[in-house]
């Protein structure tokens, strides 16, 4: 029978792939995609813990819903930012957006 370990390892793998995307991709939208993968991994963990550990409480699902809301907000603002940056600087390569240095 299937155990919690399956889901945890799966989520960890998904998280790490997303992390690689966030850290390594040049294009900012691709970075955002990586973040989406990471968030999904987190929600899988929340739901898996709910299902396997405390199916009688709803906390895991409730937090999952909130993560969804945050993800949607993050994408909306993120993409709007990228479009605004693109208009000004004609690039959305993450390593060229470096006004913060020095």
């Amino acid at each position: 029978m299937i155990s919690l370990s399956y889901f945890l390892v799966f989520a960890a793998a998904l998280f790490c792939i997303g992390l690689y995307g966030v850290l390594a991709r040049k294009n900012a939208i691709a970075v955002l995609m990586g973040i989406e993968l990471m968030l999904n991994a987190v929600v899988i963990n929340l739901i898996a813990f709910w299902r396997f550990r405390t199916p009688e409480m709803i906390a895991g699902q409730a937090f999952g819903v909130i993560v969804f809301a945050v993800a949607a907000a993050e994408v909306a603002v993120g993409l709007a930012l990228f479009i605004a940056i693109f208009r000004r600087r004609n690039t959305i390569a993450a390593d060229e957006i470096d006004l913060l240095k020095w």
Partner: peptide, 17 residues
């Protein structure tokens, strides 16, 4: 130490990790 600060978020994240 300002050579560390390249302004590139991803590099910061790698360092943080």
């Amino acid at each position: 130490s300002r050579f560390i600060q390249t302004g590139r978020v991803q590099q910061y994240m790698v360092m943080a990790l």
